[in-house]
C-alpha cells in the first residue's frame, strides 16, 4: 500500500483577474521507504505539490491520502495534528526557531507531541549526532552555517518518527558541496530508518541521488522515472 497517494489534484491560484493553473490533474503514488525527487523548472508547481502532500494547502479538486488519512475529510486542526505526528518538513530557508538552540529546535516537535523532557533531550542529541552536529548542540541558528542549519532541520524532521519527510528545495541556498553533504545525510537516513523522503529540486546533482524522479512541467507530470 502506498504511503502517499495523490488522486486527480487540481490547484488554481487567483491572482487578480488571472487564473494560474498551478497543478493540473496530478496522479501520483509513492511507496513507503521511497527516496523520491520532484523536479522541474521554477514555476512548474513543485512547491504547490509538496504543500498539498504536506496538508499545508488543500486542492481545488481531487484528494491526497497520507498514511491512510484522506485530507478531504479532515479539518484544519486534524491536519495540524497529522502534520505534527506523521509528516516532517524541511523548507528552503528559515527553518529553525531563532531563539532556540540546535538541540532545543530538534526537541521542539517532540515537545509539541508531549514527549517527556529527559527522553526528548536524549533523542534530540542522538539525532544531532547522526547528522554530524555533536559539537553544536547549544548553538543558536544564527551561530550555524547554512548547511548546518539545514542539517538541524533534517534532524528535527526525522526525530518525531514521521511517515514521510517533505523537503522543498532543501539545497537551494547551499553551495554544491554542502548540498551534496546534506543529501548524503538524507539518503543515509532513508536507508537506515526506512523513512520516506519526498524532496523537490531543480539541481541535477540532487536528482542523481533520487531513486525516483517525478518531472513536473507546467503543473503536469511530464515524466516519472524509477532508478
Amino acid at each position: 500500500m502506498p504511503i502517499v497517494e495523490v488522486n486527480g489534484v487540481d490547484k488554481v491560484y487567483q491572482q487578480g483577474d488571472i487564473e494560474i493553473h498551478a497543478l493540473k490533474d496530478i496522479h501520483l503514488s509513492i511507496a513507503p521507504g521511497s527516496f523520491a525527487a520532484i523536479a522541474g523548472p521554477s514555476g512548474s508547481g513543485k512547491t504547490t505539490l509538496l504543500n498539498m502532500i504536506g496538508g499545508l494547502d488543500l486542492p481545488d479538486h481531487g484528494d491526497v491520502i497520507v498514511d491512510g488519512c484522506h485530507f478531504s475529510e479532515m479539518n484544519q486542526s486534524q491536519l495540524a495534528e497529522l502534520r505534527l505526528n506523521r509528516i516532517g518538513f524541511v523548507f528552503q530557508s528559515y527553518n529553525l526557531i531563532p531563539v532556540l538552540s540546535a538541540v532545543e529546535n530538534v526537541e521542539y516537535v517532540m515537545l509539541l507531541q508531549g514527549v517527556e523532557k529527559v527522553e526528548r533531550r536524549e533523542r534530540a542529541m542522538a539525532m544531532l549526532d547522526e547528522v554530524g552536529l555533536s559539537e553544536k548542540y547549544h548553538n543558536r541558528p544564527s551561530e550555524l552555517s547554512g548547511g548546518q542549519q539545514q542539517r538541524v532541520a533534517v534532524a528535527r524532521a526525522i526525530v518525531s518518527n514521521p511517515a514521510i519527510v517533505l523537503a522543498d528545495e532543501p539545497t537551494a541556498n547551499l553551495d554544491s558541496k554542502t548540498g551534496e553533504g546534506l543529501l548524503k545525510i538524507m539518503a543515509a537516513m532513508n536507508e537506515k530508518r526506512n523513512v520516506t523522503f519526498i524532496f523537490s529540486t531543480h539541481d541535477k546533482m540532487v536528482m542523481d541521488y533520487a531513486h525516483r524522479l517525478v518531472l513536473l512541467r507546467d503543473g503536469m507530470i511530464a515524466d516519472d522515472e524509477f532508478k
Binding site: L111, G114, S160, N161
Partner: peptide
C-alpha cells in the same frame, strides 16, 4: 513505525514556552 510516547504532564511544556517567550522579548 514508533508512536511517540504521550506525556500527561504539561509542566515541561509551560517552561519551554516561557523560555522561548523570555528570549523573544530580548531579541530586540
Amino acid at each position: 513505525m514508533i508512536t511517540p510516547k504521550i506525556s500527561p504532564k504539561i509542566s515541561p511544556k509551560i517552561s519551554m514556552d516561557m523560555k522561548m517567550a523570555w528570549r523573544n522579548v530580548w531579541r530586540n
